[in-house]
Simulated scan of single mutants.
Amino acid sequence: MDFSLALLIGLVIVGIFIVLLLVVIIPIPLWVAALLSGVRVSVGSLVGMRMRRVPPQVILSALIQSKKAGITVDSNALEAHYLAGGNVFRVVLALIAADKANIELSLQRATAIDLAGRDVLEAVKMSVNPKVIETPMVAAMAKDGIQLKAIARVTVRANINRLVGGAGEETVLARVGEGIVSTIGSATKHKDVLENPDIISKTVLAKGLDSGTAFEILSIDIADVDVGKNIGAELQMAQANADKDIAQAKAEERRAMAVARDQEMKAKIREMEAELVKAQSAIPQSIAEALLEGRMGIMDYYRMKNIMADTDMRQSIALESDKGVKAK
């Protein structure tokens, strides 16, 4: 009797331990909910998920959601995506949203988009409801030298097929900005752009700027166009100032050269005057020697003095005449 009681107690303890182990390993309520939802998952599969360190709650919840939405999803694919670091719930929600919107999206592509670092659910929503992104203010100069500043609003829709490997919003904004600069720069007059801003949007949209990106550009609308600086006039003024500085520098160089030449001429004149004074100082001595040696007579000397006096008188009269003429 004692042995039977001990065996019974042991069986009860073992049973309780097995039940607790099953409750811990297998989410019984969720498993029951999955069965009631039509999701057939064996207990062995749930145990295998635990062994592979995959939370059964995540996989079962995703399977229940997809089943209720009428989508067939492979549990092994969901496990592989979870083990790869993906977001299982976002992928399933994206598949459901794409199915309701009649957008072709396979589980393999959805998991690839999610693992690429993009929000696959947001991409599906953007495919249904396009997104408007605004460019920063873009400044460009028309051919007449007037600067224009434009802001554009770009309506884009996600392209599911190009999400993996496609460029992001920054590339779209950069290309649109480049197109705006090119269009304004090719305009003959800035008034043409102000009168018809749609010239920018039509020209930019025709360039096919969405190639190689993860988006499809639906429209480009010019939100604002403002007149900026007169760049052409500023460039002309800068060129004129530069030319003036060059001319002033050349004039200063010529003035310096003229001053140098004047100083050189004055030096030569002083040198000639010094030589003249030296020569004049030697005349009396030469006259005295000529008189002593008999090469000049006394009458010749007085005749020379008379000629010199007459010359000085004529020079004085000429100077007084010039002064009278200038006074008149």
Rank of each mutant, 00 (worst) to 15 (best):
H81E: 09
I184L: 09
N159A: 14
K149I: 14
V138A: 04
L148M: 10
I184M: 09
A150G: 00
V154I: 15
V91C: 10
N129D: 12
A101V: 09
A152R: 00
V91M: 12
K125F: 12
V124H: 02
R162W: 01
E178C: 07
M137N: 04
V88R: 06
L148S: 03
E122H: 09
E134S: 12
K131L: 12
T183C: 12
A123D: 10
I103N: 10
A152W: 00
G185K: 07
V128P: 01
V164Q: 03
R175V: 08
E170D: 15
K125M: 12
L163H: 01
K131P: 06
I160P: 04
D114G: 09
V88N: 05
A150L: 02
T171M: 06
H81P: 07
V154A: 07
L95G: 02
K100D: 13
A167Y: 05
K125W: 10
N129S: 11
G179H: 04
D144L: 14
I133R: 03
K131C: 04
A116K: 04
A187W: 08
P136L: 13
V132D: 11
P130K: 07
S186E: 07
M126Q: 13
I133V: 14
R175P: 02
V176D: 00
A174V: 03
A150Q: 00
M126Y: 06
R157S: 11
I151S: 04
D99E: 11
H81K: 06
V164I: 13
L163P: 00
F89N: 09
T188M: 15
A150E: 00
A150C: 01
L115S: 13
Y82R: 12
L148V: 07
S182V: 05
P136F: 08
M126I: 13
V91S: 10
G86L: 07
A152F: 00
D119H: 06
R118V: 11
F89G: 03
D99V: 01
K189W: 09
I160S: 04
